[in-house]
């Protein structure tokens, strides 16, 4: 119909769609699909193999432990700092708000180096003192948790702050006026409203934490069976020509990562908002 052709020629719309689909297909979908194919090449044998190697299993366990610990820390810290940033005014608030985003743009290698400089056992600023107290940070799980926490730090805050701003303070004030204390108000009014934002933040943090590589490589020491994580296993196996094992480990990590973002992308209400008629 002439009507249709006036608006936006279907040709142009199709061309745009095609370009976008082809771009994301070649850059993301196809390569990711190939990893799955390579991993499952020859059935589940590759995956079964890596699950029988004690060092790899240890690495997977370690990765899960480090990631969950850092996600827990980031969730508490993220919700707390979001509340402080949105609900309170204090000197330096704007600076803090900007600095919280800093880890997103810092190279993981710089993160690793920075932690070594402070917490390194030999000549770090605090490292020797802490080791005297019996706490080894670098080349040990605490350092790996710190590195992982650092890189995923802004993710919860970035999800929660906009929601807190959106819901405003009226409901909280109403709860206060009805006699609810600060904690009751938080638990019964604020937390339910930011629940989904926290879930998204946690999902993104988890994906980021499981996948951290550069920073962990520096602070962990990368000792097989002790401080080697799953991402380090992928590198090690690939460089040692165990492609099947590398792809299988990568596939497991990909599954978890995709599951995490599927939570965020598919559960979240459609925010693209097609134009209403």
């Amino acid at each position: 119909m002439a009507d249709r052709s006036r608006r936006r020629p279907p040709l142009g719309r199709w061309a745009l769609r095609l370009v976008v689909v082809a771009y994301l297909g070649l850059l993301v979908a196809w390569p990711v699909g190939l990893v799955a194919r390579n991993a499952l090449d020859g059935g589940l044998a590759n995956i079964r193999d890596i699950l029988e190697e004690p060092d790899t299993v240890h690495a997977l366990r370690l990765t899960a432990g480090v990631a969950l610990t850092s996600v827990a820390i980031n969730t508490v810290f993220g919700v707390g700092i979001s509340l402080l940033l949105v609900r309170h005014r204090f000197p330096g608030r704007r600076l803090l708000s900007a600095l919280v985003d800093l880890p997103l743009s810092v190279s993981p290698v710089v993160v690793g180096l920075a932690l070594v400089l402070v917490y390194g056992g030999r000549d770090g600023w605090l490292g020797p003192t802490l080791e005297d107290l019996g706490l080894q940070v670098i080349f040990a799980p605490p350092g790996m948790v710190m590195a992982t926490t650092f890189v995923a730090l802004p993710l919860v805050v970035r999800e929660v702050v906009p929601v807190l701003e959106e819901i405003g303070t009226e409901q909280e004030e109403a709860a206060h006026s009805l006699g609810a204390g600060a904690w009751a108000t938080f638990r019964r009014i604020t937390l339910p409203s930011i629940r989904w934002a926290v879930v998204y933040g946690v999902a993104l943090s988890l994906a980021r934490a499981l996948g951290e590589f550069g920073a962990v490589k520096i602070v962990s020491g990368n000792v097989a069976g002790r401080t080697r994580t799953a991402t380090l296993v992928v590198e090690e196996k690939y460089l040692n020509f165990d492609q099947g094992g590398a792809y299988a480990t990568a596939f497991l990590l990909t599954l978890v990562a995709v599951a995490c973002i599927a939570v965020v992308t598919l559960v979240r209400p459609d925010q693209s908002g097609g134009r209403s008629p």
Partner: peptide, 12 residues
């Protein structure tokens, strides 16, 4: 698809 590169471990 767009979020995959963000969530995927960099080594992967």
């Amino acid at each position: 698809l767009i979020d995959i590169p963000f969530a995927l471990p960099t080594i992967v």
